[in-house]
């Protein structure tokens, strides 16, 4: 598999180990075509966050390491760069749990996102106006201390802050976490607008399979550190296994992917024997 020029990100069978012993990813490969939204789906502990952090090099801060495979971002092999290097190359990660600077105001949070760029005071105002056009709600709250805004507003602050770095690629980790459905919809609408109007490519990790696939172009399902299934978002939405396991459209209880595959192979075997 060779990295194509129209893919902004290529991850080729990476393995990630924490603290030299705990294996978090076994074999994950994925590509993000330029200008597209790709969803990374799976339950808790499946390895979604680890994959994003491997790509953004935030793993270093958690004593994790890519021990096998390669990551290529925009023609650059990702190795021992620092997160600040990746930001300068145009890749910004929005961490899980929003992680606003609670004691800073909403506007200070957003301005902090431009730290890596050399902007004059006037440039910053122009950029702020550009960002507020997407996040109208934040403009009204710009003088509030970020720690006291609602969960949805904090998620918007986190995305707005990342957009101030003028990224070519955004990594979003669980933007829907703990938010009411209408807020989730509002945030995903903004993400789609940013994707279409600013041309930013997006890799997003989500547990909310339904919302993620409805907004993404392509999806990968990972479980216990391996990619189990991938395909175009519409086809995944119609896939029986996905419907049963991740969209809860089934009368049976929740199982994991492996069980479904095992059941399938057993029924195949039964057919052959019969």
């Amino acid at each position: 598999m060779n990295a194509k020029a129209d893919d902004i990100l290529t991850v080729e069978s990476i393995e990630v180990v924490y603290d030299n012993v705990i294996s978090a990813l076994h074999d994950v490969s994925l590509t993000v075509p330029r200008g597209k939204i790709v969803a990374l789906l799976g339950g808790n502990g499946a390895g979604k966050s680890t994959t994003l952090k491997a790509v953004s090099t935030m793993l270093q801060g958690e004593r994790g390491k890519v021990t096998r495979g390669t990551i290529t971002y925009d023609g650059v092999v990702v190795g021992d760069q620092k997160p600040s290097d990746m930001v300068r190359l145009g890749m910004v990660q929005v961490l899980e749990g929003r992680r606003c600077f609670g004691h800073l105001t909403v506007e200070e949070n957003i301005i902090a996102g431009a730290y890596s760029r050399k902007l004059s005071k006037a440039d910053i105002q122009t950029e702020l106006a550009r960002i507020y056009a997407y996040f109208k709600r934040l403009k009204d709250r710009r003088k509030s201390q970020a720690g006291y805004t609602s969960g949805g507003e904090q998620q918007m602050v986190a995305v707005a802050r990342a957009m101030m770095a003028k990224p070519k690629m955004l990594l979003l980790d669980e933007p829907s976490m703990g938010l009411a459905p209408q807020l989730v919809a509002e945030i995903f609408n903004i993400v789609r607008e940013l994707n279409q109007n600013e041309g930013v490519s997006i890799l997003l990790a989500e547990q909310n399979t339904n919302v993620a696939l409805r907004n993404a172009d392509y999806g990968y399902i990972i479980e216990t550190g391996n990619v189990m299934l991938h395909g175009a978002a519409e086809s995944l939405l119609k896939d029986d296994k996905v419907m049963e396991l991740y969209l809860g459209i089934s009368k049976e209880g929740r199982k994991n992917f492996r069980d479904v595959l095992r059941e399938e192979s057993q029924s195949h075997a039964a057919i052959h024997h019969g």
Binding site: G61, F101, G102, H103, Y115, A165
Partner: peptide, 15 residues
């Protein structure tokens, strides 16, 4: 001030 609040988040936006 950003680092004081959350060093990880500060690193994620390139500070």
């Amino acid at each position: 001030r950003a680092v004081a609040d959350d060093p990880g988040a500060a690193a994620s936006i390139g500070i």
